[in-house]
Amino acid sequence: MNSFPESALYGINAVLEAIQSQQRACYKLVVDQEASRSRRLREIITLAQSQGIRIETLPSAHFDKQFRGVSHQGIVGFVAEKTVLSVAELIAKVYEKDERPTLGVLDSIQDPQNMGALIRSAAALNCQGLILPKRRSAPLNATVSKVSAGAIERIMIAEATNLSQCLTELKQQGFWIIGLDPRADSPCWNLDLKGPIAVVLGNEGKGIRPILKKDCDFLASIPMAASVESLNASAAGAAIFYEILRQKNERA
């Protein structure tokens, strides 16, 4: 498989979301000449041209050779890196949008497929931002963007050097810290999740690290059939973010 720069996005949804959201500069689109005749690609090209984005069209054989090994759907975009905030910046921005915000704190989610799916679920279920550790985390690369179906453009992301200190900072700013743990006694729907909430999610192998569990205000589980031991991080995240959204949407 060829090596592509981290700023390459491939596929219709990833490229379209980057252009529509205008959250980062898009420098150039490279388009498969034959695929460019499709309605969806023509719409993207027209939108890109209206923003002054350069379009490069390649014969199909050359395009496939240059981008061999990836699911590109006939279009690749070259964009600026995703803006990553500090934790303090993220907290300030989410409170500007909502007095009862929801955040996700991702502990050691290192698989890009899982990261992309989790970002997609978080954005769809009104989680305003995600906090990632600077180490032990999947890079925010083209694979993550592709799997997220472009949702990475719609959600704010911060990095923290020390997640334990990050949780302390969140508490000081009014967030309740909920750790998702399959062995926790309390189901997530038994907790009051209507206020500012930060959910800590670990990877499916080891879960949340013990040092972070100690920093959580509550641990919660997602009850499952006896034949299923656990969910992966993206599925667990979707379940807890849905429950938070459901509770916050209830009439007082």
Rank of each mutant, 00 (worst) to 15 (best):
N2D: 09
N2T: 08
N2L: 12
S3R: 15
F4R: 14
S7H: 08
A8E: 11
A8Q: 10
N13K: 12
E17Q: 10
E17K: 05
A18H: 01
I19D: 03
Q20G: 13
Q20D: 14
S21M: 12
S21T: 15
Q23V: 14
R24P: 08
R24Q: 10
A25T: 14
A25M: 04
C26P: 01
C26G: 11
Y27H: 15
L29T: 12
V30M: 05
V30T: 14
D32M: 03
Q33W: 04
Q33P: 01
E34P: 01
R37T: 05
R37H: 10
S38M: 11
L41W: 06
R42W: 10
T46E: 13
T46V: 13
L47A: 13
A48W: 00
A48S: 06
Q49R: 05
Q49M: 07
S50H: 04
I53G: 06
I55H: 01
L58K: 07
S60Q: 06
Q66K: 11
F67S: 07
R68K: 13
S71Q: 12
S71Y: 13
H72I: 13
Q73K: 05
Q73I: 07
Q73N: 11
G74R: 02
I75P: 00
V76A: 09
V76S: 08
G77I: 03
F78D: 06
L85S: 07
L85I: 03
S86G: 12
S86F: 02
V87Q: 02
L90H: 02
A92S: 15
K93R: 13
Y95L: 14
E96L: 14
E99T: 10
R100Y: 11
T102Y: 05
L103R: 02
G104Q: 08
V105T: 03
L106G: 01
D107L: 08
Q110L: 15
D111T: 08
I119W: 03
R120D: 02
A123C: 13
A123Y: 04
N126Q: 08
L130D: 00
P133W: 10
A138G: 01
P139I: 12
L140P: 01
N141C: 05
N141W: 08
N141F: 04
A142E: 11
S145N: 06
K146Y: 12
I152E: 00
I157K: 01
E159K: 12
A160M: 08
T161C: 06
S164R: 10
L170M: 06
Q173E: 14
G174P: 01
W176R: 15
I177W: 05
I177Q: 11
I177F: 01
L180A: 09
D185A: 14
W189I: 13
D192L: 09
L193P: 00
G195P: 00
G195K: 10
P196I: 12
I197F: 04
A198N: 04
V199P: 00
V200E: 04
V200R: 02
G202Q: 13
G205W: 14
G207K: 05
I208D: 05
I208P: 00
P210K: 15
I211C: 10
K213A: 05
C216K: 06
D217S: 10
F218D: 12
A225G: 09
A235S: 13
A236I: 14
A236P: 01
G237W: 07
A239C: 10
A239G: 09
A239I: 08
A239N: 03
F241N: 01
E243A: 07
L245N: 07
L245M: 14
K248T: 09
E250F: 11
E250K: 12
